[in-house]
Computed example of a mutant assay.
Amino acid sequence: MKYLIFFCCLFNVLLSQRAFGYDFVVAQDGSGQFRTVQAAIDAVPDFRKKVTTIFIKKGIYKEKLVLAGTKNLVHFIGEEARTTILTYDDYNQKKNRFGEDKGTSGSASIYIFGTDFSAENLTFQNSSGPVGQAVAVWVAGDKARFKNCRFLGFQDTLYTYGYGSRQYYQDCYIEGTTDFIFGSSTAWFERCEIFCKKGGSFVTAASTPDTTRYGYVLNHCRLTGNAPANSYALGRPWRSYAKTVYLHCELGNFIRPEGWDPWDKEENKRTAYYAEYNSTGPGAAPKQRVPWAHLLTPQEAQQYTLTTVLRGWDPTKE
Rank of each mutant, 00 (worst) to 15 (best):
P130G: 04
A187E: 10
S184A: 15
K94N: 06
G162M: 11
D90E: 14
T157H: 03
T104G: 08
S127T: 04
Y169Q: 06
T70F: 00
K143C: 09
A81M: 04
I181V: 15
T178P: 00
A119K: 09
D46R: 06
V51H: 05
N121Q: 11
A140P: 09
D101Q: 10
T160F: 14
Q133R: 14
G129I: 01
F151S: 02
I112C: 13
V51Q: 03
G141A: 06
C149A: 00
G69C: 09
S185L: 06
L122C: 03
K95V: 08
K94T: 02
K143V: 00
S107Y: 04
G103Q: 08
D116G: 08
D142M: 10
V66Q: 10
G59A: 07
F146H: 01
E63S: 04
G69Q: 08
N121D: 15
K62F: 04
L122H: 01
N92G: 00
T177G: 03
G129Y: 05
Q125P: 00
V66Y: 14
V137K: 03
T157Y: 00
V135W: 02
T70W: 04
Y168D: 11
I174F: 07
D90N: 14
T115H: 09
I112P: 12
V139G: 10
K62R: 14
G141P: 11
Y159I: 02
F55Q: 02
N72W: 03
Y169G: 00
E63T: 11
